[in-house]
Design a protein around this nucleic acid. Structure first.
Lengths: 231, 231
DNA sequence: CGTAAGCTTGAACAGCGTCAACCCAGGTGG
DNA sequence: CCACCTGGGTTGACGCTGTTCAAGCTTACG
């Protein structure tokens, strides 16, 4: 019937639903999940205004989320990595509030939200875990210091990506920036040229190596200092 | 036993829990709520790192939420008005993630979260409404265009406050900026002087009148144009 | 092989931050 | 009751940081 392994043996299990779920009911989650959806670069996981039916958990790859504002400008709202959950913001309105686009080959678990809510109303551990995950998402917003310098913002950005890679089991020292410089710029409120210049500067100062999209962090602690610098 | 009116007769009922709750169970919510907590200017509703027990719904007044980062800088995360709910971001960690401070005289409803979760596990409409409200909060984040000009950011800010006042039943054309210019500046990633200068400019251009903290919007549509201007 | 998209680097400009001075209102204390 | 002080707000001058414009380079892709 269903391909892929069960939630209980998933390497990402510590990041999504399983940890809060009563062990004896965990198999119900596996039954809910369509585990092997693969998307390729530039394919949409969902689009803004589509009817909300599923939430998505990223298993591998990276995703960018964005809106188009009234001027037709692209507003990048975030970049998501394995273990992260997409679609929570659509529950209230029943339509997705933003676009989610695969930046490389992406594998996702799909959870039908109605089914999940039914489980939640039967089993308190499901309900609690759903609410907890939404709460985490809420508290993870608003970390970027708007008043800080471009250098500080980019350092912060790199550390954030590095941390997300660590969650996936890598060292987080060597990773791929799957998004374009322009995406990074818009996300941070900078110009593309500024992003490019500062990455070059970091390379010159032996903070990192950067060829094309590949990043290798050489001086993590210096990056931390830069990231936490006041505005 | 309990002062104040019940949830079913509350003027803010359309904004918080009641609208999604099964009518026959609405009285249970009223029993949960401690309705008459009053705080004065500069009193904390909660502080970062305190143990999470309650969520708070603002009935009147205004609240600022902020964190202190590793450099001791104050990061303003938002301003909250009647109908808005505080504390959702603390559910996952069981400690409040930010400080919530009354900017003027504030009246709040307090909901014990454990009790609320018990109700939720008994009644699906409670569960659904809780999840829905959290989803709304998630989708309301990330509207500010970081790339836009200082003028555009301040126009956007004024419109946001205006809308929040409308929800409270006023016209939203005449209101009090209960926070300081410095708070506004930090929230938008600007300097205090810039906020001051731009408010003066708006006044000069007949977009608004502004004496001290009192704002009167004279040209709402012009403000909308400014707010939506590209970066 | 040719085109387009993405990236880098340089030079010039300007928006906004910084510094400084000053004003005003409210609160405190003698 | 007045003098003082402090916090918040405004305005001006100046200069830096980051944007804009422009040109050239590289890589991806049809």
């Amino acid at each position: 019937m269903r391909e892929g392994q069960s939630c209980s043996s998933c390497r990402l299990a510590t990041y999504c639903f399983p940890p809060g779920i009563d062990k004896s009911h965990l198999h119900l989650l596996s039954e809910l999940v369509n585990q092997q959806t693969i998307l390729h670069r530039n394919e949409y996981i969902y689009r803004a205004f589509e009817t909300f039916r599923k939430i998505f958990i990223i298993r591998s790859g990276s995703v960018k989320t964005f809106k188009i504002n009234s001027n037709g400008e692209k507003i990048i709202t975030g970049f998501c990595y394995p273990g992260e959950i997409l679609g929570f913001d659509a529950i209230a309105t029943k339509t997705y509030q933003e676009n989610a686009l695969a930046l490389d080959t992406v594998s996702v678990c799909e959870l039908n939200f109605n089914e999940l809510e039914k489980l939640s109303s039967k089993f308190p551990s499901y309900q609690h875990q759903l609410v907890k995950l939404m709460s985490e998402k809420l508290s993870s917003n608003f970390f970027l210091n708007l008043s800080s310098s471009a250098e500080s913002k980019i350092a912060f950005f790199l550390l954030t990506i590095s941390n997300k890679m660590k969650n996936y089991g890598t060292t987080g020292m060597n990773f791929n920036l799957s998004m374009t410089r322009e995406d990074i710029a818009r996300y941070l409120g900078l110009a593309t040229e500024t992003v490019s210049r500062i990455l070059s500067k970091f390379q010159l100062n032996n903070i990192l190596e950067c060829s094309k999209k590949n990043i290798f962090l050489k001086d993590y602690s210096q990056l931390q200092i830069l990231a936490s610098q006041a505005g």
